[in-house]
Each structure stands twice: as C-alpha cells, then as structure tokens.
Design a protein around this nucleic acid. Sequence first.
RNA 1: GCGCCUGUAGCUCAGUGGAUAGAGCAACCGCCUUCUAAGCGGUUGGCCGCACGUUCGAGUCGUGCCAGGCGCGCCA
Length: 580
Amino acid sequence: MANVIEKLIEEIKLVVNESLKKACSSGELPEVLVPEILIEIPREKEHGEFSTNVAMQITKQAKKAPRQTAEIIIKNMNLENTYIEKVECAGPGFINFYLNLKWLYETIKVIQAEREDYGKINLGNGAKVMVEFVSANPTGPLHMGNARGGALGDCIANVLKAAGYDVTKEFYINDAGNQIEKFGKSLEARYIQLLLGEDAVPFPEDGYQGEDIKDHMRDYISINGDKLLNTESSDRQKILVEYALPINLQRIRTALKNYGIEFDVWFSEQSLYDSGELEETLKFIKENGYTVENEGAVWFKASQFGAEKDEVIIRNNGLPTYFASDIAYHRNKFLKRKFDRVINLLGADHHGHVARMKAAVSSMGIDSDKLDVVLFQLVRLFKDGEAYRMSKRTGRAVSLNDLLEELGKDGERNDEEAIIYGKDAARFFFNMKASGSHLDFDMSLAVQKSNENPVFYVQYAHARICTIITQAKEKEGVEIPDVNSVDLTKLDKKEELDLIKALAQFPEEVRISAKTLEPSRLTRYVLDVAGYLHSFYHACHIRGEEENIMKARLLLIDSTRTVIRNVLSILSISAPERMD
RNA sequence: GCGCCUGUAGCUCAGUGGAUAGAGCAACCGCCUUCUAAGCGGUUGGCCGCACGUUCGAGUCGUGCCAGGCGCGCCA
C-alpha cells in the first residue's frame, strides 16, 4: 500500500522544516511559529511537481517580503538523498520543487508489485462503516432516484473499502407503516375489481395507480382464484401484501444485481417492531424527557438538539411514524451493531430528514458527526431533447429496468451484453457528476451517439492495451517482463512521463474521493488516464521498437491497464479486453 | 415567510484559499500502407449570477441581494 506521492510530500515537508529550523537558529529568519506546511501539486506543469506557500504564510512573522523568505528557506535546504532535483522561488513567493525522474520509475515498480491492490490506502484504519442506500419503497419498481442513489452509494462504499474501511452495504426495507397499508389497500381494490368489475369498489384516492399492482392481482387470481372475496378486509390485505411484497423485493434484488449492486444486509423495518427495539427506543426517549404531547400526538423535541422544529413520532391514532422507526434503526446501527460511522444516501427532496435524524442520534448520546448524510439531486431524464418521465407500459415513472433496457438495446447485442452495457453506461453517467449537481440524463445521447460516450473512451483504452500486449506476445514473442530486469529510464518521452504521473496520482485520488465521499472524482480521473494512454499510443510505438524500449513500454501499458482496471472495479464498470 | 441545494465557455460539467480558471460536447482545421480512427493534434469560445467584506492572495471563506430546484407538525 505504498503511496508514492504521499511519501514525496512527507519528504518535502521534512526538507522544508529542517531548513526553517536551520535558518532560525542561524538568525537568518526570526523565530517563527511554523504552521502546518502545505505541499500541493501546482496546476501548471512549469511550476514543478510540488510547491509550498509557507514563505507567504509566515510573511508577517518573518518581517520580510515573501520572496526573500523563500530564498532563505531554499538556501538552507539539504537535498542530499532526496528525489528533489531543483528548487525555485516563483511568483509571489511560492517555493517550487522539481523532482528527478526516479520517482516515476519507482511508481511503475510499485504498481507492478501491488497489482490489483495498487490504489488501496489505509485512511480508514479498519473502522466499521455502514453505507445505507437505495432503500427503495418495496411497493413498486426502482426509479431514477434509486438508480442514481444506487450508483453513488455503491461507489462510495467501494471507495471507502479501497481506503481501508470495513464497509457494510445495507438496504433498509420499508416493510412496515403507512405505505404498506396503502399497498395492501391498492392490491385489495384491484383484486376485487378484477373479479367483480371496475365499479365493484372504488380505488383508494392515494393508492398506487401502477399497472404492476393489477399484474400482481391477475397472477394471484390465476393461482389462487377468488377465495379471498369473503375474507375479512384486514386479513385479505395482509395476505395480499404477504404475496406481493416478496415478489417486489425479489425484483428489486434482481434489478440491482443487473446494475452491479449486491448488498451485504437487507434490514427489515418490521423487524424493529417485532424485536421490541422500536418500543425500547421510544421508551428511552420518553424517559429522558425528550418528548412532549400535543394535540393527541407524541412529539420528539428535536429542537432541543439543534433541529428547527419538533417532530411527531406517535400519531394521534397511536401508530408510530416512519421517523420513529428510523430512530430505532439508527440506534440499532450505532449501539447494537456498533458501527463507527454511518453514511446514508438520500434524495435531495428528503433533505428535511437530515437535521431531525442528527438530532435523534444526538439525543441517544451518539456523536452526530458519526452520521453522514449524502444528498443527491434528482435526475431528469431526457430523450431526443425532451423530458421523458413516464413509462407508458406501467404508468409509473421510468424504472431502472426500463433504463438499462433502453441503454442496452442495439440489434447486435444479445440480452446479456445489453444488460452489461446498460449497467456500464448508466453507472458511468451517474458517477460523472458530483452528487450535489442536478443531473440531466439524455438517453438518446447515451444510446445513439454511442461513439461520443465517455464510457467507451475508457473501455477502449483498456481494450487497446490488451490488444497490444497480446500481439507483442504472439507476433514478437515478447511478454511483459519482470520489472527488475528492465531499464525504465528508457521511458523519457513527454507522453510516457505524463502517463506515469497520472498513474502515480491514483492513491491520492482514492484518498480524496473517500474523504469527500465523491466517487465522481474517480470517474473523471480514469477519463484522464485514458486520455494520457491514447496520447501515448499515438506518440509511441511498442511493436517493432528496439527490445529494451519495447519492454519498458510494455511495463508502462501493463501498469496503465492495472490502474484502469482498479478504478473501474471501484466503479463496478466492466473492463472489456476487446471492442470490435 | 423560513430552511437546504445549485448558479463557471453556446450546451453538460470539473476546479481540496494560490500563480495565466479547465475538460467533454458543439463549431472550424489537420492526421488512417504502421500495435483498434470508438483514436490523436490544433483553433475559436469566460463581467466564475451581482455587490460588499475577510486575506499577502477569493471561482473557492463570510454577509446581503438576484435567479432556478427542493422542502417546511401527525407522508415517507
């Protein structure tokens, strides 16, 4: 788990620190309180590999112009046995560090040694973290919000894994409460209407209108007939829910699997009722005086814990709200299952839930900073430039299955290829943009103009590497050599060095993505790497070159292949070996 | 009315308080007898919504406006 860049930054920090000490003790600089030395990677390549602003930060203390301070710091540096080749003062007082190429060759060696582990870091130190995402209402199919939240949540979990956390992916099944009741009433109404005619009973005003409800009941009737007609209504609803809910859940599972997502835990809301945890939780909150009764309902005093207003936890009909079971659920996450950190993904339209959930967590004596809520903006689907909302078939919003099907369809693909393609394209698109940005997804662009699709750009780079490696072996008899038997200094062209620099950046990208919970950063990174690979491909040949060059370049593209694979594996996007 | 999110090139978006603000698409000009042209190279294109403030330094932080999205006691 070597992070070459991190090591270099440490080395430079040390050099700067030593130099400051020396300058202070010799009286060239007054005694200064050195702030945390910040080493950054300049945007402009002419400014070196790394730079620091320390001279400007201590301007006041040093009582000198920043450039003058910078010169003093540079003069006192000891660069022996470091990767630093040259140090310059530039601009308003930056100190720029130029490295010798050794660190790039070191990077190739690290990648060759670590293979599929390259990019893994130990930021998390094995801390137990749960990522709860999708958690779709099981009364119907997955929609676009679930699709974005799913791609995002799954990748956040994967990034955290790569960053050294012990990650659990969890789906919270809302199989209790109001919407299940609504589900039961909708099923019941369709059941009766199908058997006795449309006018036999009115359909509930707020019921689920979708065609899938009718389909469930057609199937049910074809198996079980009309025997529930004389059953008492509440029992009938219960039986119908018990029939349809597992089918819906199974469909959700399958859809998610096709989408590349497999959860470690499927956690039932109903189980919180059954185990008594909900009751225990409510008792705890009440006994600590965190509730108040008003208008026949019981309220949680969320305002006492920083939220804007109080929230109902038990309605005046005596039934707990969703919020009540969510409190019990979080008690379970933190106190029963002892997660160090919990990350919930929520559509931005649920942002009102954040403050009250944090308040509830605080009320149970848990540090609310341990709960992160990632809000993602909703998705607007477009097709041929027009908003595309409803699926005609189901009368519902476009489902994840519809999307994958739509993206994957192409006369030449078989069903299996279509699903994989749809998954790759959808996941790539959903993870190209930061979670907070609104996302317009134009399906016609992802399907018709597939040659402009960025997912191809990356996969093509990977396939290109695979082809070259295969042909080098078959036609030249040269295999990827052992890294220690090759003269890596043969890699000295601009395109080669740029490519290696990009590869060196990978562990750093993982660290930042994990810290900011933004896997979109990795999507853009892998696009970058692919770009450098394509540029290299056009500037440098492999087959037909002199043997030492051929071997060094084979190692370079093999290392590139490793990085592309590792990133795509975090994103759960396939890395095909050929595209034709 | 209050709260959360967003505002950067024609479009879609990057941009961890740093130096001359970037990419893709679109437009235009080049490159296939050479390992995949699903590719490469180049040109054009910016009051970073507006105004103050903090700072050696602001697209980035703070305050106030403006515009869009979302939410606001017994839905989830």
